[in-house]
Measured scan of single mutants.
Amino acid sequence: NKFNKELGWATWEIFNLPNLNGVQVKAFIDSLRDDPSQSANLLAEAKKLNDAQA
Rank of each mutant, 00 (worst) to 15 (best):
D30A: 09
N41H: 10
N19Y: 13
G8P: 05
F3A: 15
L32T: 01
A10Y: 15
A52C: 11
L7F: 09
S31L: 12
I14L: 09
F28C: 04
E45M: 11
L17Q: 02
L49F: 02
A27Q: 10
F3V: 12
A52D: 06
K47A: 04
F28K: 00
A52Q: 10
N4Y: 11
L20G: 00
R33F: 13
E6D: 10
A44C: 13
P18D: 04
Q53I: 08
A27K: 14
L32Q: 01
D51E: 12
L7Q: 05
N19M: 05
A52G: 06
L42S: 02
S37D: 06
L42V: 14
D35S: 05
S39G: 08
F15I: 15
W9N: 11
I29R: 02
D34K: 14
P18V: 08
L42A: 03
K26F: 05
L32R: 00
N16E: 04
Q53D: 02
W9H: 10
A10E: 08
S39C: 14
E13C: 14
V23T: 11
F28W: 02
I14E: 06
D34C: 13
T11M: 15
L20Q: 00
N50M: 01
F3E: 13
Q24E: 02
L43F: 04
A52P: 01
F3M: 13
L20W: 01
A44L: 09
A27S: 12
L17W: 03
L17E: 01
F28R: 00
W9M: 13
S37R: 07
N4L: 12
D34W: 08
E6Y: 07
L43H: 02
T11H: 08
N50Q: 02
Q24D: 02
Q38I: 06
L49W: 03
S31W: 10
K5V: 11
W9D: 13
L17I: 01
E13P: 04
A46W: 02
R33M: 15
W9L: 13
N1D: 14
G8A: 15
F28Y: 05
E13G: 02
L49E: 01
K48A: 13
A40Y: 08
A46G: 01
W12M: 14
N19F: 14
P18F: 08
N50W: 03
S39D: 03
K48D: 04
A46D: 00
A27M: 13
A10R: 03
E6I: 10
W9G: 07
K48E: 07
P36N: 02
P36F: 04
L20R: 00
L7P: 04
I14N: 02
L49S: 02
P18R: 05
A46N: 00
A54V: 08
D30M: 06
E45A: 13
D35Q: 08
I14D: 08
N4I: 10
N41S: 11
N1I: 10
D35W: 07
I29N: 01
A52T: 08
L43P: 00
K47Q: 10
N21L: 13
A46M: 05
A40C: 15
L49K: 03
A52K: 09
A46L: 03
R33L: 13
K5H: 11
Q53V: 06
N1P: 14
V23Y: 14
N21R: 05
F15P: 02
D51Y: 06
I29Q: 02
D34N: 13
Q53F: 04
N19E: 03
D30T: 10
F3C: 15
P36C: 08
R33V: 09
L17S: 01
K47H: 11
Q24N: 01
G22E: 14
A10H: 06
L7Y: 11
K2W: 14
D35I: 03
V23C: 15
K48Y: 06
K2D: 15
V23R: 10
N41E: 12
D35R: 05
E45G: 04
K47N: 04
A40N: 07
N16D: 05
F15Y: 13
K5C: 15
S31Y: 09
N4T: 10
L49V: 08
S39M: 13
N21A: 05
L7S: 05
F3Y: 08
L32N: 00
G8R: 14
D30E: 10
K2E: 12
G22P: 14
K26L: 11
L17H: 01
N21D: 12
L43K: 01
K47Y: 11
D30H: 06
N19G: 03
A27R: 09
I14V: 05
G8M: 15
N21Y: 07
T11S: 11
A10V: 15
A54N: 08
Q24W: 03
F28P: 00
K5F: 07
L42F: 05
I14M: 03
K48G: 06
